[in-house]
């Protein structure tokens, strides 16, 4: 899809063959625009900040990308609520000390995987639409968060979690490093692993996949479990980044993760897409928000304008074929 944009704007030159040229062009335009608006836009500090937010969003969108590629109407509306729940649980279990962090991590990652698996079972075995299952699931997960938060009110994170959220290693924010590792791992998973090959095939035609002997159910359940796991992991990062947990901290990430994946070229019809694309989508989304903050706009107008820009980006990258 981004290649299509390139064909339009660049007149079918060889540039159209560069992967993600559409997304890269938008990013370049946003960077130039940002610098024109505010000379400190391209300062290392601001760029690291944007990259950190992008990395967080990219990790939150990783599971979403897998689910959307898996096709069959796959979409995960429980990402935000899982992130909220994990932030609340890590906060409640670990408190402000580091001692219980490993235990808390094990619990939330396991719980996230289970929630994803439950979504997958609903979608695969009950034949319900993923949109509906995960919508209902997100009510339940939010409810769990509410119940948990009553018994263990959220606290400030301990040094380890906080360091992951806002600290740096060799001058590079931990979030960016983690995002890079996740990007490499996801790309290897999609491009090189057996699971990755199977995922694209299942996503593009599930009947053909089962006729070719691909274990469709295993691929789909793995995908959903991975989505829950990755959302839980993103929730931990979010808790570190925001340095507090509340009942709606993860909510915006549900839709932002879908937007990042789709802007990045993942087809909602399934069977096509890449994680690098999603990362670029996340960068675009974060750059827009950052730019609007730099312009000194309040949250209300920021919402409105980022919505308008999202419409423009959608128009440029992902119009439905007739």
């Amino acid at each position: 899809m981004s290649a299509r944009l390139a064909n339009i704007s660049l007149g079918r030159t060889s540039l159209g063959r560069i992967p993600h040229v559409g997304s890269l062009g938008i990013i370049l335009a946003l960077l130039i625009l940002g610098q024109l608006v505010n000379p400190s836009f391209l300062s290392p500090m601001n760029l690291w900040a944007v990259l950190s937010v992008s990395a967080l969003l990219a990790v939150a969108s990783a599971g979403q990308t897998l689910v959307i590629i898996s096709g069959n109407q796959g979409i995960d509306l429980s990402v935000g609520s899982v992130m909220t729940l994990t932030a609340l649980i890590v906060s409640g279990m670990a408190g402000s000390s580091d001692a219980a962090v490993p235990m808390a991590l094990a619990v939330v990652l396991g719980l996230g995987t289970l929630i994803g698996l439950a979504n997958g079972i609903g979608a695969r075995f009950l034949g319900l639409y993923p949109l509906v299952v995960t919508l209902g699931g997100s009510f339940v997960v939010e409810g769990l968060g509410l119940v948990y938060a009553r018994s263990r009110p959220p606290q400030m994170p301990g040094p380890m979690i906080e360091n992951i959220g806002i600290g740096r290693f060799l001058g590079i924010p931990w979030l960016v490093l983690i995002g890079a590792v996740v990007t490499v791992a996801m790309t290897l998973l999609l491009r090189k692993s057996r699971y990755g090959r199977q995922l694209y095939l299942v996503g593009s035609n599930i009947r053909a996949a089962s006729a070719a002997g691909i274990p469709v159910t295993r691929v789909l359940l793995t995908t959903w479990a991975a989505s829950g796991f990755l959302a839980a992991f993103a929730g931990v990062l979010l808790y570190g980044y925001v340095a507090s947990a509340n009942l709606s901290v993860g909510a915006p990430y549900t839709m932002m993760s879908i937007a990042a994946a789709v802007i990045g070229g993942t087809a909602l019809s399934g069977g096509a897409g890449s994680f690098v694309g999603t990362v670029l989508g996340a960068v675009i989304f974060s750059l827009i928000t950052n730019l609007l903050i730099m312009l000194g706009l309040g949250p209300a107008l920021r919402y409105a304008i980022s919505g308008l820009v999202l419409i423009l980006v959608l128009f440029a990258t992902s119009r439905d074929a007739r």
């Binding site: 199977q198 035609n205 053909a208 019809s269």
Partner: peptide
């Protein structure tokens, strides 16, 4: 197994190579 019902056989958005290799992706 090969069928004339292409809806049940073809991975339309994927490349010819991937379509040819689908059974290999299925098996260890």
């Amino acid at each position: 197994f090969v069928s004339g019902d292409r809806d049940e056989m073809v991975f339309a958005p994927r490349s010819i190579r991937e379509n040819m290799l689908a059974p290999f992706a299925a098996m260890r």
